[in-house]
Design a binder for these strands. Structure first.
Lengths: 336, 336
DNA sequence: TTGTAGGCGTTATCAG
DNA sequence: CTGATAACGCCTACAA
């Protein structure tokens, strides 16, 4: 155990098995032209030595690194965590591993990350959103591997896109509130910077309000971190206003939930005094009291589907459709 | 853009810059012995071609892959998401990238993953928990890179450990309930299989109950997925019992929160009818009504610290302590 | 300060 | 069915 030499390589397995390294390569990768007998000897030798396949060498030959690069804005946001889970679920079965970077909602940071991740010769790349720097797009195009942009659709993707129309979803969620008779609409969304999903949601909100002939009061529109505390703060702010909204569309269940919990505490009735609609359909949405009306989004499915599109491409399939709309669903519960 | 050839390599940059590949290597890696003039020419050529450094080739030379391998039980569990965030935060600054695998709480799957991840020649490995298969331990020991086991301390680590005593934390949380005068204690924890953290927490609970001369009723002890719905189900189950507990220690805030929300719905008063203590100090804990007493754990700090220990080791520091107790804190709020 | 030779571990290709 | 050779992109060691 004190031998701090190098890990056993194919040549070591080959020596022990009494064959050439090439035969080991074939035997271990399941090449059909290896005699069953030979294969057995090789496998036994490999196990005995604790041989671990070196992906870096294969990657160098551009024969597939079995790596998929992923860039998300924020690893600890639960919606992306679900998407990562979905990706992992499908990819790990085929022996792929994820390399992850988080951009912190910055397109420049995303560019830096993509550059770094491409240095590992990934067999595919998964990004969040549709807007990127020119350099990012160009790097990815040249990489010549399948690229999937997730969580939004609308503009032309670099290669493939898996998501839904954030604009339409927000538009319909807002119309849902308006149909209930609410006229004084407030909006709370995540930070706008470099975030096309949030931008589309706010645009959808504004469009629905305008279509109904209503007005958007700018002091009822807030962008804040997607955290429970943001919702809490918002509820307090509304409580102090003279003119209060009668409905809130929060572009995140987390914000909406914080808002409802604080309303309960302040004695503001939901939906009596203010109706609330969220976004994402987080687990909390159907457990909170009152249950939260929201936009259901197949978070994990986005990951699963992205993974399988990449796998299909890598398997040589030619006609993989480029834009996948996974849809959304307005979920009507007690809060609105 | 339709040229599907290969990505530019050093030799291409060299050709364009009119120097040898070796000079490109030195110029780009900031080697001091390169003339400023030459460096400028090289950098310009590299940018022009969109050169991306190939980490796989450097890794092959055993010069460091700039990759850190991470194995977590579950990517979408928010406590691990926070730890991943902490790791990323520190590692990305130094140009490291994470490769991630999820074991689904299976030690055999963990072994498979470690084997795969080691194939990328990571410069460090981060695991969750202290129990692993023999083969896992042996693979990691032989790898000769810094290893950190996280989220628990107690037994001897493979190399380094960053965490806290789950036993002590659960013990103290239970004593906290007992000091309040509760005598009929229930426990709800995550799945036991291959999970030393959960096992230690249950053991801590039992030890505290025994120490107080009380008894553990086995029908009040449940292991269930760490989800809100588990807490909801538990509240319903208790409501139908003839003999009910007067306190619940849930080894997860998620379960505790689901429990409280359902109690509110059922008209069961917290803490009047049943006191509740959670674990983790999730954001929801201080927003829920009543606010949740819990065990605060520095989730993100576990990631940050693990990362910096690895970096210190890689920087050649010899005397990096092997066991880091990040501690915990009993947080007293309204629910108990 | 810059260049040349060789090899890291694997696999495509061609020979046997 | 198995083996020898060369090459993937980079960097250490040595030379100029």
């Amino acid at each position: 155990m004190s031998k701090r030499s190098r890990a056993p390589a194919m040549r070591d397995v080959a020596r022990l098995a009494g064959v050439a390294p090439m035969t080991v390569s074939r035997a271990l990768s399941g090449h059909p032209s290896v005699r069953a007998e030979t294969r057995k000897v090789v496998v036994r030798a490999a196990n005995k030595l604790g041989y671990v396949h070196n992906f870096m060498a294969s990657a160098l030959l551009r024969r597939g690194s079995k790596l998929i690069a992923l860039v998300v804005p924020n690893v600890s946001n639960s919606v992306f965590a679900e998407t990562i889970h979905g990706l992992e679920e499908v990819l790990s079965v085929e022996g792929y591993t994820l390399t992850i970077g988080h951009s912190g909602y910055s397109k420049d940071e995303e560019e830096r990350l993509v550059r770094t991740l491409l240095g590992y010769g990934p067999d595919g790349v998964v990004l969040t959103g549709l807007t990127h720097t020119r350099a990012t797009r160009s790097l990815l195009t040249r990489a010549g591997v399948p690229i999937v942009e997730t969580w939004n659709i609308g503009s032309k993707p670099i290669d493939m896109a898996v998501g839904f129309s954030n604009f339409d979803a927000a538009f319909q969620a807002t119309e849902f509130l308006i149909r209930r008779g609410q006229k004084l609409l407030a909006y709370a969304g995540g930070t706008q910077t470099d975030n096309d999903r949030t931008q589309a949601r706010e645009a959808g909100f504004r469009a629905a309000v305008a279509k109904a002939g209503l007005e958007v009061r700018e002091d009822w529109v807030s962008t804040m971190p997607m955290e429970l505390s943001s919702g809490v703060e918002l509820a307090r702010r509304f409580a102090e206003m003279n003119r209060k909204p009668d409905a809130l569309f929060a572009a995140s269940d987390v914000i909406a939930s914080g808002f409802i919990l604080e309303c309960n505490r302040l004695g503001v009735r939901v939906p009596g005094d203010i109706a609330v609609t969220g976004f994402d359909d987080a687990p909390l949405a159907e457990v909170i009291e009152p249950q939260l009306s929201t936009v259901h989004v197949p978070q994990r499915e986005i990951g699963r589907l992205s993974a399988s599109l990449i796998l299909r491409r890598l398997a040589g399939e030619q006609h993989v459709p480029t834009v996948h709309d996974v849809g959304f669903r307005i979920v009507s519960r007690a809060s609105a």
